[in-house]
Design a protein around this nucleic acid. Structure first.
Lengths: 128, 128
DNA sequence: ACTTGACCGGGAGTGCACTCCAGCATGCAG
DNA sequence: CTGCATGCTGGAGTGCACTCCCGGTCAAGT
């Protein structure tokens, strides 16, 4: 069972060392192992969990909601449905966000085209 | 030439009144008109500009970069290329962001499926 | 005239998510 | 054994983007 130093965990997860410590402090990383001398030891499971955190963070889930998820995990199997609901709701939000972004992308593209066509607008002349 | 009150501008742009004031203060909204008694008057052009700001903000462009864009607009036509470059770079970033989001979406979906299949993992047992 | 609601500038405060620092304790290569 | 990288805790600080509050002004309906 391979384990990893904080530095490795940071490199593999993309979180900084400080962020890992911070996450542990606020409860996002329960039960991180410690060596005899008090140093953190990250297991494979911890890394998997970090990967999920990375994913949720990058998709904009607030820390508070991830914490809620952790709390439900700690409450055991009875909370499975609720956990699934959180993920489903989040999934929906991300989908919405993507489609909004795609709309915005169109706008930006048309703006760029206007620049390319040599018809940029300066703020106080003509809009487009 | 229709003009609008701050309240209308807020409603139409989706920014709060405070945010509009804030944007004017930091220079994101140059040359907003004023009534005889000092109240802001938003022209159609202003609203178009707000729409672009909305779009850039919602796609994650930092305020500092929008400010840079404003500075270039104020510097006149010579900066058209540079402005186009900013938009193009931003467009690229948003595209990248979308594809990252889509990847994450997959991960989340598979997580949800695991829950639906009744094989959730609790933090300290088995990852998946 | 009176009341109600919108608006003003200036400045202070908020929330989030880190990030940095001081001072001290290992770990390990040469 | 020395030295340098890595790690620890606790707490303070940062950056961003607003958001709120205040005392005062202005506009519009009745």
């Amino acid at each position: 069972m391979p384990s990893h130093t904080p530095k490795q965990a940071a490199a593999l997860s993309g979180f900084s060392l400080d962020t890992l410590r911070y996450y542990e402090r606020i409860g996002l990383l329960p039960r991180i192992g410690r060596s005899a001398t008090g140093r953190r030891v990250f297991s494979e499971v911890d890394l998997k969990w970090l990967e999920l955190l990375r994913c949720l963070r990058d998709t904009g889930m607030p820390v508070a909601e991830m914490l809620q998820f952790v709390r439900l995990m700690n409450d055991g199997a009875a909370t499975v449905t609720e956990r699934a609901e959180i993920l489903t709701a989040h999934h929906q939000r991300v989908e919405d966000q993507i489609s909004r972004l795609q709309g915005h992308l169109k706008q930006i593209r048309s703006k760029i085209d206007i620049y390319r066509d040599g018809k940029p607008w300066s703020y106080n002349q003509s809009a487009s």
